[in-house]
Design a protein around this nucleic acid. Structure first.
Lengths: 155, 155
DNA sequence: AAAGATTGACATCTCAATCTTC
DNA sequence: GAAGATTGAGATGTCAATCTTT
């Protein structure tokens, strides 16, 4: 039908989808199998943990940094609370808002999982990329993510 | 925890996830709203349509080209059969295998949807990329997808 | 009435089990 | 018994409605 119209650009799009499909599921399964942490938990924990100064983040802010929807985040936070990795904490300055705060157990879990995750990223993704390719991918896809962020209207 | 260990490579990984999350859902919703074709259907139809010589593909082969699991594909083919976009056809040379064959309606649906999809890709993705960035992303992520294909063992 | 967060209802997707044919 | 395909059961994800506070 129309595969021939923009071969080069479409290849970039197509291989973004293919690489994502090939790598993400595999890494997620491996990290969870070896550490007990689903990748969604890891992702959220990492953001909460790196929030300064006191390693807590409003759910709202967290949902902008994480790759799934706010309603999903609500449930993921529930699960992590049940597992003892974070606490919920009310925002004294705004009764509507809530913080997620990482616990000592949460930090320990993150410390255990980080090397596994980093090794998987290296082994299943970075290994195939030359240094300059890593740079291009980081900056170019970062630009895309910034421009097409969750709240950009469809126009 | 360990965010500082490999800043450049991790940025490539992180922004792959972020760009994917920011763009794919949006394009999928837009294409479906404007054409009635879910992106999964489009993807599968496109592969079946470009299979030579007679625009049919074994389910097995199709599942290797498409970005979701074989069991999901089984259901997607069901849905498309019900919608009249493909037919199932037994493989005369192997009683276990089945082909998906595109119908005239299927080709028409693809023709209608293609310009919408291509425009969305251009507008929400390619627009942010310089020509040389497109090339690097296409070749580098293509290499990743090929190397980490669905059947590569976890080792 | 708008913003932050959660919940109910549903869609999408995968794993493991199953059925059939090789 | 292994390969191709489908199915059952359940995990994961989203949208729209709701509740509370602003």
């Amino acid at each position: 039908v129309a595969q021939v119209r923009e071969p080069e650009g479409i290849g970039a799009w197509r291989n973004l989808l293919r690489a994502h499909a090939a790598v993400v599921g595999r890494i997620a399964r491996d990290v969870e199998a070896r550490t007990g942490l689903p990748l969604t938990w890891y992702d959220a924990l990492l953001e909460v943990n790196s929030a300064l100064p006191d390693r807590k983040l409003r759910i709202q802010d967290l949902s902008e940094r994480v790759v799934f929807s706010r309603s999903r985040l609500s449930r993921v936070v529930d699960e992590m609370v049940r597992a003892g990795l974070v606490r919920r904490e009310p925002d004294p300055s705004d009764g509507r808002a809530a913080f997620a705060v990482i616990t000592a157990d949460g930090r320990a879990a993150l410390r255990r999982a980080a090397p596994v995750y980093l090794r998987d990223i290296e082994e299943h993704f970075l290994r195939h990329l030359a240094p300059d390719e890593r740079t291009v991918i980081a900056t170019a896809l970062g630009r895309v993510a910034a421009a097409e962020g969750v709240d950009t209207p469809v126009r």
